[in-house]
Simulated assay, not measured.
Amino acid sequence: MGDSDWTLIVDSAKDLADAYATPPSLNECELFYVQIDERGTSVTLGFETSALPSSPPPAWAHKNYNAVQFYVKFMRVKELRIAGWDASVREAAVTLSPRDDGALRVSVEGEGAHLVFMGSTPLLTRTHPFLRA
């Protein structure tokens, strides 16, 4: 799977994928948000990119923006492992690896930061443009 093919395995990412000629790779984006919900057994990752869509959604037509944020929520998380969490995580390498059993291995690796888990049903939960100062 190529770096920008993450939109093929994340539910509800079609609109975001359609907005870009080539969606930004997760590794080209800055990871700015991580939420681990032990009650809901989910992990949400928030990404930010300055790569702007070539065909933005009509709702964005009259907005002044130079960056886009989006959130991907992974459900039914198991085998969560964290080894260190450093500020360098913003530039971490994020890898989504589908497995034959239908699960998805998610890895966030940066200098001083390591997060790995198995999940399923990845959902794009929110996407919005904004003006970065």
Rank of each mutant, 00 (worst) to 15 (best):
K63I: 11
I36F: 01
D5F: 04
G110Y: 05
S25Q: 00
N66V: 10
E38N: 12
L104Y: 05
L16E: 02
T95F: 00
D5Y: 00
D15H: 06
P98R: 04
M75N: 15
G46N: 07
N27C: 14
V89W: 05
T121F: 11
A59S: 10
L96M: 13
T127R: 01
R132K: 15
S88N: 14
T121K: 12
A92P: 05
V68A: 05
F47N: 03
L26I: 01
P24S: 05
A21E: 13
F130R: 10
K73Q: 15
L124C: 03
L123W: 13
P98S: 05
G84H: 03
M118P: 00
N66K: 08
S97W: 01
K63Y: 02
E38G: 08
E28I: 03
D100K: 13
S50D: 09
A61K: 13
P24H: 07
R105W: 06
I82E: 15
L123D: 10
L26A: 09
A113R: 02
L16P: 02
F74Q: 06
L26R: 06
A21M: 02
D18Y: 00
E48D: 10
S120L: 05
E38S: 12
R39C: 08
H128C: 06
S55K: 13
T49C: 04
P57C: 02
L104A: 09
W85V: 12
T125H: 03
R99A: 11
S4P: 00
K14F: 04
P57G: 07
Q69N: 11
A13Q: 03
S50I: 08
L52Y: 00
E48S: 13
S42A: 12
M1H: 10
I36S: 06
I82V: 15
S107E: 15
G2D: 13
L45C: 03
N27Y: 01
K78E: 13
E30G: 06
T41R: 14
A83P: 02
D3A: 14
E91N: 12
P129Y: 04
I9V: 15
F32L: 14
T95W: 01
P23V: 00
A67W: 05
V10E: 04
P56A: 10
G40K: 09
V94A: 03
K73A: 12
A51Y: 06
S42M: 09
P53V: 04
A103Q: 15
N66P: 08
P23W: 00
L26W: 01
T121E: 14
N27V: 04
T7Q: 02
F32Q: 07
G110D: 01
G40R: 09
W6M: 07
S120D: 14
V68E: 02
Q69K: 15
H62L: 13
F70C: 05
S120V: 08
R90A: 15
L31C: 14
